[in-house]
């Protein structure tokens, strides 16, 4: 059973308080009507299933009811970081030890995270 740090509550809490909501950073296309059927199908149905570092959307359902992101290793189940909506992960498959400082300054988008 996972032990998850809620970035809004500032505490590590039991998994029973959370619901997983699938892959993180799936932004809804800004103009759905301009999407081709294939693009819309990609948004709706296609998700990554990596072995290793994965970014997931979770909600602190029995708690503050806030959604946030989790960087989790799908092999070891280790949670490497959690971060609020609109923030970017510092640990990624490309940078498993954490991104260089300048890269984190990239513009962040709030349009993150819903799955169909």
């Amino acid at each position: 059973m996972l032990h998850i740090y809620c970035p809004y509550c500032g505490e590590t809490r039991e998994e029973e308080e959370f619901h997983p909501k699938g892959q993180a950073h799936i932004a809804r296309p800004a103009d759905p009507e301009a999407c081709s059927d294939e693009e819309w199908g990609d948004y709706l149905f296609f998700r990554d299933n990596p072995r290793g570092i994965h970014h997931e959307l979770w909600v602190h359902a029995v708690g503050c009811r806030k959604f946030f992101n989790v960087t989790r290793n799908t092999v070891t189940y280790e949670i490497l970081e959690t971060y609020k909506m609109g923030e970017r992960p510092t640990i990624t498959a490309e940078h498993p030890e954490g991104r260089p400082a300048d890269a984190t300054a990239q513009q962040t988008s709030l349009r993150d995270g819903v799955r169909a």
Binding site: C9, R13, V62, C64
Partner: peptide
């Protein structure tokens, strides 16, 4: 004060 799981309720 916290919101948490109580038995199988909240």
């Amino acid at each position: 004060g916290v919101t948490t799981v109580f038995a199988k309720a909240t």
